[in-house]
Design a protein around this nucleic acid. Structure first.
Lengths: 209, 209, 209, 209
DNA sequence: GATGAATGAGATTTCATTCAT
DNA sequence: CATGAATGAAATCTCATTCAT
């Protein structure tokens, strides 16, 4: 049922954007389709020319986000060879993406339970894929002797948690630039992994400006 | 409205417990009072002998949690003098509490927006108080030269994020004991703060068993 | 179930008074027994030591009022012989009672439909009895040639309506004394009946002071 | 929210009519929207395509009635010049309207307290406007020497009360025709105002047939 | 005689969804 | 494609009433 004409596409995008904002502000359950429609400037009934149903809207928002993040990371990592450099690049992309897509990331973290079991499983699988990618890098760094890993899974968790948390407070304004936030968080994470010269390595790759 | 009779007190507690569990599983908005009542074994109308309204129930759960956490930390910190020891103790209590009270912690993090503005402000104030306490310790460690602090606020955030995240996955079972989880997370956090001999200091205070 | 001890009687009366006031202000349906109980200073459950049920409360209030009005009129009329004097006395008592018992009179007029069919019939019968008494006097005045009656029933209605209406606005304060209100209304009614020298006769019996 | 489609308009009218009848029979508070919906032949939720909320329904009914009455009076009075003729015409329209719109008039009198303060004030203002119009005519008749006015406000009240009262018993059937009722009530009122030749003047303008 | 608690019924209102126009 | 209208289901909350203590 999704729009095919150009105008239809525009409306469909407007709906997704409006929904993302409302889901972020009030939550999926607390957001009514009436609010979404009003925000877009149409009537409730008209929504159904563009979406399957309310949950479908949430699924679109969530799914798109993970796809985009994975693609960004893969492209960025493809250009590095050194394992620590890879970790630094990953951390940078990770924090940047979570800050710049705070709303949808937040939705992705908080509204999993609003999905039907099948849809939930689908999203969880993609998130696990992402975590596995991080954990693999950490284990590689461990094997190479460049990091002092305590528990690969917990290290991964604490990095994932950083992103989630950044998304919960980053607003785009404030006295810390995003570059600086990335710089500091990367150092904290790298220190945590027991990488020697963590601060210097991060500064060399992504100076805080 | 809360019970005065002994039996009434029991019912009131049962309502709060049942609600906490359901809010955790399905979210505040997605939980109906009918579910709560059924779980407790009474009829919907009877709930109102014990609560003011649905939001009041959420407020009770959230407020109680923050009070308890603050009290635990204050008692624990009162017994240490060394600043690094204090940090280690704080991290230990922090992780343990978030793991052992995963449900209510999670509710506290995800359902803030379900509160009315006044109630929300009240809870946020208590959370800020907690964060300030952590940040003060970090700054003290910095001044004493025992830590290499990058940005006290971001360090605080990453510690807070750890707790939040632990609460989102810790189930009480699994192959890592809670003591071991605390041990590792504390090391990661202390390493991140640039504390020399982080691992050894943690192991000395709270051996992983 | 009605109270027998002295204290019980007091409470029972307090309940009736409080209920009358609330029924007057918000209507029977819109008044909750919780409000009544709170006004009296007891809890809802305790009401049932004094009343049968909610409707019973209304019936007590309504029934008592009509009994009292009838008794007042009968006593007053027993002391006059002249038919016009009787009408003047009746009008005086009629207006005075409706003004001084505005609340219960108003309830009696507006809450008939809140009674069960049987109770309603009982109250309506007493009201019809009262109307018949008025109409009988009017017809007697007509037969005696002292009044120029157009339609005894409609004259009766317009007198009844006067009372009802007075009860809807009389507050006890205001720039017209009750005596003056009675004086004027009596003249209007007597004029309407086509009684010669209406104004003078009223002034003679009940000077406006 | 009121209908835009032709069919929608029909439903909206049906809802108002059904509500008016039910409010008249059982009162506003005692009438459930379910009853209204059932009477119209739709489901409860569908009502909200046509009304804002329950009170809105009452407001529409009340406001419409007063507007209509005022308009009728203004048109009728515009065609007379003599002050007594004006009074007779006013009385005629007054009684006729109250008889023919007994239901809504009754609602207007008995359900004022079911309105919110703002809505109540709005309706009361319109009613006061109507009373002022009557009182002005009475004062004019007084000044012209054609009437023997005792207290313009009380005369006004007794006329208003007549209308209210007629609305409470007139059923359209019965042994008195509406024309005859109007004829008699007008005479009673005019007599009350001390107008000479009251009966003859009324008979000349509106013979009882 | 008062109270806390429970109950069943019911009220208003909101919502996602459908469909004829 | 948009819309007004209808629907069924559900949700929160209130209420009169009962009863053990």
């Amino acid at each position: 049922m999704t729009g095919i004409t150009a105008a239809g596409q525009l409306t469909a995008n407007a709906i997704r954007d409006e929904a993302a904002q409302l889901f972020f502000l009030h939550g999926f359950e607390a957001t009514s389709l009436r609010q979404v429609a009003t925000g877009v400037g149409i009537k409730v009934g008209s929504l159904y020319n563009h979406i399957e149903n309310k949950e479908d809207l949430l699924l679109q928002i969530m799914g798109g986000t993970m796809d985009e993040l994975m693609e960004i990371q893969e492209n960025a990592l493809a250009e590095c060879s050194d394992i620590i450099e890879k970790l630094i690049v990953l951390l940078s992309c990770h924090i940047r993406f979570h800050a710049e897509h705070a709303q949808v990331v937040f939705i992705g973290n908080s509204e999993l339970r609003s999905l039907s079991p099948e849809n939930r499983a689908q999203i969880i699988a993609r998130r696990r894929e992402y975590q596995t990618m991080i954990q693999n890098l950490i284990e590689e760094a461990d094997r190479s002797g460049r990091a002092l890993v305590l528990d690969a899974r917990l290290h991964t968790f604490s990095i994932v948690a950083m992103g989630t948390h950044v998304a919960s407070w980053y607003k785009g304004s404030g006295n810390l630039s995003l570059d600086r936030i990335i710089n500091i968080y990367s150092k904290i994470a790298l220190r945590g992994l027991g990488v020697a010269d963590a601060d210097a390595l991060v500064d060399k790759k992504f100076p805080a400006l």
